[in-house]
Amino acid sequence: MIGRVFHYEFLQAYRRRSELVTPVVFFVLVCSMFPLALGSVADLLAPLASGVIWVAALLATLLSLDQMFRQDFDDGILEQMELSEVPFYQLVAIKILAHWCLTGLPLVVLSPLLAMMLFMPSESYLSLIVGLFLGTPILSLIGAIGAALTVKIRRGNVVLSLLIMPLYVPVLIFGATAPVMAAQGIMPAAQLLWLAAMLVLAATLAPLAASLGLRINIYGS
């Protein structure tokens, strides 16, 4: 069942390819807006690069969250999943994992390219990539709670952003400061370990909260 849900998610994503690409294109676009607005001087952009990439990754994730459950909620697939013999939170966790593979992972893969375009110092690359690798799943996990709670709201995207963005603050702080530390020659172990700890916490609790949120919307009370 779990494997089948994972396969189903990828199949769905493949059939809606254009939607899949949107967050990634958005990510690249936001990052390339900054040199246009701030000027193309390398000395100016280099210290800002990690912050810009992290904010862009955060916004791209927010953009994709609304679609995480909506389609399956509207056509009743989520209700069938809820009724199946597999615990619902496990299926929700699989859906979140698939969401991260399809939106978070491409951002991680693309980040070195954008870091290069923003003149990030080479010592920072590793901590940026590791940070994004640990941080973007947290964005998907916390975002899933918001997506679950707003699944019934027609224009849920605005409410979702308002609700979820404050919760992203710790991820943003630890994620964006790690490459800055690395550029100063300090090993950013503390930041990356914090991200890993938050990932463990979010992976434990977020699927439960998201499945509870979905249940409330499925049963209407």
Partner: peptide, 20 residues
């Protein structure tokens, strides 16, 4: 507040707000 205001069904809104 905005989550609570944008859900129409009162029971759903209450529970969703509580989870948030």
């Amino acid at each position: 507040i905005s989550l609570h205001q944008s859900i129409e069904n009162r029971d759903t809104a209450s529970k969703a707000t509580a989870i948030a």
